[in-house]
Design a protein around this nucleic acid. Structure first.
Length: 871
RNA sequence: GGGCGGUUAGCUCAGCUGGUAGAGCAUCGGUUUUACACGCCGGUGGCCAGAGGUUCAAGUCCUCUACCGCCCA
């Protein structure tokens, strides 16, 4: 084995070998219990970030263990076409490369261009994912725009249309002027803006010097005003309701109307009504039968029946001009600083523009109900549970979903229009002629579907629901969906709705929600803040195993993770420790060791480690079954380093010539590699190859579980006692500055004959670990040389002085010790003299306290006796 | 305005159904002993945000307060 651990060397080749050996390939005809997941498909535009690393590593740990437990596993990978994101990126790319806009190419050529680009980009992200070593079945990889995915999307759309759940309608929706498409409510982020509230005077018709003052954050929309509204209860305006105003900068006459939705406290209490460009105004206008005047176009430029000089101006440019013009006319009363919430595009952060247009919608009320029910009945379980509330809250208030997008890259909407009679036909295949007038002049809707529409079908579309495939029959419903809380609405809720509606079954039984990765200071990682840590850099520096372990041990379900370089450094050191411990074991093997350990022949220390390992194995299984991956990782970490390495390997150095101990060494290492494998697949595989007996790869071995043959409680307790005496001896040595390399004589004392016998049988370990030349076990310390004392349980330790100044030092220290013991005795005594505690607490607890008290009292006495001996 | 988290060692964080507080890094002292200095041995460091309550017993359960963060409207 190489002398030093090199993550780069180890992590270089294994993934390829695993994949080539079909280790992750599912077999839908297997008879064992299915366990399946689908990967949240990353965007083809994307590159791997820490969020991915976390959301992918956790299910990989789960999946690898399930594989080792002989489940019939499938973990299906895929990538997402990510409509808006991809189109934007490729458009930029096209501009840069060829100086062309997508319109220059035309729709078909542009889409071809995107496909070419997709092939490269997809390879890139898959290459990055490979570095994490995920146990994905690449033979089943899907892309959201694959032909079979397309077929499913179309079938679903048509069915929903025929059920009346998809409809076309003209409503006010959010439009992003930069992405040039409408958005769903979810794709709009509300952000606080420090803006201005402008008070504009609208003159009353026929009364030049009489005004109604309205306050607005968007003066440019005044050109589209068709009324001014006041609250009917507002005394200030009661007498002018119904009167007419002259809209400045236009010659239009508008009315003053009353509506109780107007907030008397806002501004002057009188508000301008712009039905075409504000959702509230739109509602009010509907009720009052107001005209709608459109003055802003799809690109957020001014348009409509307005003065020529405004036409074509950007909305913000126009705002300045309007304010200037009004100032000149003396129609601006004042401007105030004002903080308000404004919608921004989720994708590009541009301020969205409310806009009336004809779009496709999915009616959600009916399909939401069964989706709520399956969660209520725990057919779908959120982990941690608190996210259910978030889910319910959104589902109870769900609004119809605007699913059409003015993009080219995506699933084309299967709606066809007759150019002759205007008939709308929604069909899976393009109809050859109009169903109404038989015309053959037919064109397809130019819009595509919201990317999340196809995502919502992902768990069943990828498994082949459309053709009722073997995979679908075996692996659906899937077992777990692991994802981030930020897409519970976007994705999880919609998958549940669609899954239940179309398959009659839940898409997954459990939803594992993980937290956000933050930087060391707890700040959100983002490109703009420049605090994002690239997982590939981390893997390069510390290794995939170290990164995976770091994420796992910190992944408290549902909690954010502060990513700290210092921490990963620590787990890289752990990998190094694993490497070296294994190296030691392997170096000492003689080749005649197998895993058939004869439990009758092995030593007490062997039994101790087997018993301990057995306990840890049980705990790890239990924790992992409950998704407490972080605690499982912690258990293994501690056991490997601080029990197996610190103690067992040291114990075993004394018995290395014994074949039975060597067998245990090899066997325990094997078990530990198995436990660790889901967390650190690379290093464990590398080492396994050097000690393997049967299975070719570690993942093919059976994950350990509790074994009643490895239950050695007496030996376990004996060795724990020995450890404590050794620790106390070491402490006494260092505290008294006895040269650590000096071999010395040691005396031990206990009044218990049984314990004396136990320890005397283990003396070779004691001598080795405390650097003792010879150790004598006594039941009495009189007639021995004076020395430093240590007390541990009912044992005493004596290390002879080398000179008189040692004696003085020791006396001083012992007095301190007495004080310490005194304090603890007082504390416990108080507790035990409390009648309520003694009568009400469980007996075992009370006995425990009493035992501890006795131990302390003994300790105090012993020290006091020593003091009088030394004085 | 409604809801949800967080506040534990110098820093970043664990701590399940209540039973004398843990990890990584940092720090201090010792140590180059043939698995490992990415190490070994030993130590320092916490009225678990504050107040009240339930209980024999509270970091853990309940109530309130403060500060920090997130989601929804």
């Amino acid at each position: 084995m190489e002398k030093s651990y090199s993550h780069k060397e180890i992590e270089k080749n294994w993934y390829k070998i695993w994949v080539e050996n079909d280790l992750f390939k599912a077999d839908n005809k297997s008879k064992t219990t299915p366990f399946s997941m689908v990967l949240p498909p990353p965007n083809i535009t994307g590159s791997l970030h820490m969020g991915h690393a976390l959301t992918f590593t956790i299910p990989d740990i789960i999946n690898r263990r399930k594989m080792m437990q002989d489940f019939n596993t499938l973990w299906l990978p895929g990538v997402d076409h990510a409509g808006i994101a991809t189109q934007m990126v490729v458009e930029k790319h096209l501009k840069k490369e060829k100086g062309l806009a997508k319109e220059d190419l035309g729709r078909e050529k542009f889409i071809q261009f995107v496909w070419d680009w997709k092939k490269k980009s997809e390879k890139q992200i898959i290459k990055q994912i490979d570095k994490l070593g995920l146990s994905l079945d690449w033979t089943r990889m899907k892309f959201t725009l694959d032909d079979d995915m397309k077929k499913t999307v179309i079938r679903v759309f048509v069915q929903l249309y025929k059920e009346g759940k998809i409809y076309q309608g003209t409503y006010m929706v959010n439009r992003c002027p930069s992405c040039k498409t409408v958005l769903s409510d979810l794709e709009v982020d509300h952000r606080e803006i420090h803006g201005k509230l402008t008070y504009i005077k609208y003159p009353l018709k026929g009364k030049k010097d009489d005004f109604v003052v309205v306050a607005t954050t968007r003066p440019e929309t005044m050109l589209g005003d068709t009324a001014v509204a006041v609250n009917p209860e507002d005394e200030r305006y009661k007498n002018i309701i119904g009167q007419e105003l002259i809209l400045p900068l236009t010659n239009r006459v508008i009315k003053i109307i009353a509506d109780k939705r107007v907030d008397k406290e806002f501004g002057t209490g009188a508000v301008k009504i712009t039905p075409a460009h504000d959702p509230n105004d739109y509602d009010i206008a509907l009720k009052h039968n107001l005209k709608s005047v459109r003055v802003i176009d799809h690109n957020a430029r001014m348009t409509g029946p307005i003065k020529k000089k405004f036409i074509g101006l950007d909305r913000f440019e126009c705002r300045e001009k309007i304010i200037n013009d009004l100032k000149k006319l003396g129609l601006i009363e004042k401007e105030e600083d004002y903080v308000h919430n404004v919608g921004h595009c989720h994708r590009c952060e541009t301020m969205v523009e409310p806009d009336i247009s004809k779009q496709w919608f999915l009616k959600t009320s009916e399909i939401a109900k069964p989706a709520i029910e399956v969660v209520e009945k725990n057919n779908v379980v959120f982990i941690p549970n608190k996210w259910e509330k978030v889910f319910f809250n959104w589902m109870y208030n769900i609004k119809d979903w605007c699913i059409s997008r003015q993009l080219w890259w995506g699933h084309r909407i299967p709606a066809y229009y007759c150019l002759e009679c205007g008939q709308i036909m929604v069909e899976e295949e393009r109809p050859p002629k109009c169903s109404n007038c038989n015309s053959t002049e037919i064109s397809q809707d130019v819009d595509v579907l919201d990317t999340w529409f196809s995502s919502a079908l992902w768990p069943f579309s990828t498994l082949g629901w459309n053709v009722n495939s073997g995979d679908f029959k075996t692996y659906y419903p899937t077992s777990i969906m692991a994802t981030g809380f930020d897409i519970i609405f976007f994705w999880v809720a919609r998958m549940i709705m669609m899954g239940v509606h179309f398959t009659g079954e839940v898409p997954f039984r459990e939803v594992l929600i993980n937290g956000l990765i933050r930087d060391e200071k707890g700040q959100k990682m983002s490109k703009t803040k420049n605090n994002a840590v690239d997982p590939l850099d981390v893997i390069d520096k510390f290794g995939s195993d170290a990164l995976r372990f770091t994420l796992a041990i910190q992944a408290v379900p549902g909690m954010d993770i502060s990513f700290s370089m210092n921490r990963i450094k620590g787990y890289k050191a752990f990998a190094n420790k694993i490497w070296n411990a294994s190296r030691y074991v392997i170096m000492n093997l003689k080749g005649d060791e197998n895993f058939n350990v004869d439990f009758k022949k092995i030593s007490d220390t062997d039994k101790w480690i087997l018993n301990f390992l057995n306990n840890i194995t049980e705990k790890v299984n239990d924790l992992m079954d409950n998704y407490r991956i972080n605690e499982a990782a912690d258990q293994i970490y501690h056991f490997f380093w601080h029990e197996y390495c610190d103690w067992y390997l040291e114990f075993a150095k004394n018995d290395i010539d014994n074949i039975d101990t060597r067998k245990v060494l090899k066997f325990t290492l094997f078990r530990l590699l198995q436990l660790l494998h889901p967390f650190m697949p690379f290093i464990t595989e590398e080492i396994y190859q050097k000690i393997k007996i049967n299975e070719d790869f570690l993942i093919q071995t059976k994950f350990p579980s509790f074994n009643s043959e490895m239950f050695f409680i007496d030996e376990y307790k004996d060795i724990e006692l020995l450890k404590k005496i050794i620790m106390e001896t070491r402490k006494t040595r260092t505290e008294n500055r006895i040269d650590p390399n000096k071999k010395i004589d040691i005396y031990l004392k206990s009044e218990s004959e049984k314990e004396r016998e136990i320890v005397s049988n283990l003396l070779r370990y004691f001598n080795f670990l405390t650097k003792s030349i010879s150790t004598e076990i006594k039941n009495d310390f009189s007639n021995l040389p004076k020395g430093f004392r240590g007390v541990c349980l009912n044992w005493e330790i004596l290390l002879p002085f080398s000179n008189n100044s040692d004696r003085v030092k020791e006396l001083k220290r012992l007095k301190k010790e007495v004080d310490k013991a005194e304090n603890q005795i007082k504390k416990l005594g108080e507790k035990l003299s409390n009648k309520e505690f003694v009568t009400k607490a469980p007996e075992l607890i009370v006995i425990d306290f009493k035992k501890n008290l006795q131990v302390l009292i003994d300790k105090r006495e012993k020290i006091q006796k020593t003091i009088s001996d030394l004085s």
